[in-house]
Amino acid sequence: MADTLPVEMIVNGRRRAIEVPVNVTLLDLLRDELGLTGTKECCDVGECGACTVLVDGRAVDSCLMLAVEADGAEITTVEGLAADGQLSPLQQAFLDKGASQCGFCTPGQLMAAHALLQENPDPSLPQIQEGLSGNLCRCGCYFQIADAVLAVAQSGQEGGRK
């Protein structure tokens, strides 16, 4: 069996103390141990962005991070965006602008967009396209996703955080 280490992290605002095998990625920890299956697995090489989560506010590919590396970190997943059943402005904008088709890339897109808006509350279209280029959408919703991000930026509801 693999070596394990005790890890403490805050996941979507909740403190978690877990014994984690050292050879498990943050993605596997979230999906398999914590049951947070909103974060998706696709390429496993940091190319598609489906597994994007926020670690201490920064968007990262959770498939390229060992869970033990997240010791002490604050993690936000797509499940942490809505508060009290109320969608975040970004989530609502994704619905309104048609930014989600099959939906498999959507959690990653939302997390990357959220981080982008935190860093740059008023991005241009090229900045959005650059900032989200690490999130593949095979349904081809890229323009609708950018529309949604622009709409939130223009409404001033920065980052989708209430």
Partner: peptide, 9 residues
Amino acid sequence: VGSAQIRNR
């Protein structure tokens, strides 16, 4: 280098 996510790591 890479995407925003990669540049963050």
